[in-house]
């Protein structure tokens, strides 16, 4: 296949907020403000940014789990936003999601076999009972789960084991594309390495494409091919993972990189200007990062910078990036 496996154009998602009974205004929360991504087959496209910047919303919109307010979404060249469920069914098989919280994402009353069989029965109704069983066993083996787990319930497993089961569930229909929403954030360091290795191995074996959501930049450096830095529902910088750590172009990316605690120390010795995320209900008119930006000038507060391609190939949305 040529061209991106997943593409969004001008993607916007707004959530209506509860209206105050005296007010006639309908406040809207701008969760995504015109996001363009093009994810190439076989890559690990990482999305980073702070809590509330719209990472999960982007993943859910691509998966068709929420309706965008504007913009277009393509999967393997086919437009999929606004598609009805029946037409979408064969596509659902091909794109799956691993959800943010391994404790909440598995049905507590469903044993592992039922958890894994459900997507096959639903999305691949042509499969016979024995084929379903075979497919479940294959995916358990591929994800390092013991076959004896099948009759057990989620609460009998540790966080890392649950995340393996959640990954197995995402893989059981043999998808080409996986949205992994903070798949290791809730796990201990020694378990994080196990899950990251699993994702790396599965990608090599099955040629998977990942949209990998995280707030941990050190994981991106290790795991990612390209990285999108988001802030307040918009893309601030898009670059090769190797490049962004060497030459970050957006002031927000630099702020994020500076904030990473380092084994060598020295990150927390510098004085820091306190920053608050702006309100997504009333986003600032110019650059969303302007209120926290050490480089901000008058122009930044009135004119919204567009994502531009710089000489080194990085794209950055900053008036002064070069």
């Amino acid at each position: 296949m040529t061209g991106p496996i997943v593409e969004t154009k001008g993607l916007e998602v707004r959530f209506p907020l509860p209206t105050h009974f005296l007010s006639r205004e309908k406040p809207m929360l701008h969760a995504l403000n015109g996001v363009d991504v093009a994810i190439q087959p076989g890559e690990s496209f990482c999305v980073v940014g702070e809590s509330g910047c719209g990472k999960t919303t982007l993943g859910r919109a691509i998966m068709g789990l929420l309706e965008p307010s504007a913009g277009e979404i393509y999967f393997k060249g086919q437009r999929i936003d606004g598609m009805d469920e029946t037409t979408r069914k064969p596509i659902r098989r091909d794109m799956q999601m691993v959800f943010q919280n391994p404790y909440a994402s598995l049905n507590p009353r469903r044993n592992v076999f039922e958890t894994l069989a459900e997507p096959i029965r639903h999305l691949m109704p042509e499969k016979s009972t024995s084929e379903v069983r075979q497919q479940v066993e294959d995916v358990l083996a591929a994800t390092g789960c013991d076959p004896s787990w099948q009759r057990r319930l989620p609460h009998e497993f540790s966080g890392g084991q649950r995340q393996r089961i959640a990954i197995a569930r995402a893989l059981v229909t043999n998808p080409a594309f996986i949205v992994a929403d903070e798949p290791i954030s809730a796990l201990d360091v020694s378990i994080q390495a196990q899950i990251l290795n699993l994702l790396t191995d599965l990608q090599a074996e099955r040629g998977l494409t990942y949209l990998f959501i995280t707030h941990d930049l050190s994981v991106v450096e290790h795991f990612g091919s390209r990285v999108a830095v988001m802030y307040l529902g918009a893309m601030m910088e898009l670059a090769e993972a190797e490049t962004i750590f060497e030459t970050p172009k957006h002031p927000y990316t630099r702020l994020l990189l500076d904030a990473i605690p380092k084994l060598e120390g020295g990150s927390f010795d510098k004085p820091r200007t306190p920053g608050e995320l702006p309100d997504p209900v009333n986003p600032p008119p110019g650059c969303p990062f302007a209120p926290r930006c050490p480089m901000a000038e008058a122009r930044c507060r009135s004119e919204r910078p567009k994502l531009r391609t710089l000489d080194n190939g990085t794209q950055a949305a900053c008036h002064f990036a070069e």
Binding site: G160, S190, Q192, A193, N197, H222, A241
Partner: peptide, 23 residues
């Protein structure tokens, strides 16, 4: 093992050192 398992201590795209099992 904990230190070796950190992504910042591994080469890009390589497998991470992993401690088997869990506490």
């Amino acid at each position: 093992g904990l230190l070796k398992a950190l992504p910042q201590n591994a080469g890009r795209g390589t497998r991470l050192y992993q401690i088997p099992g869990s506490m």
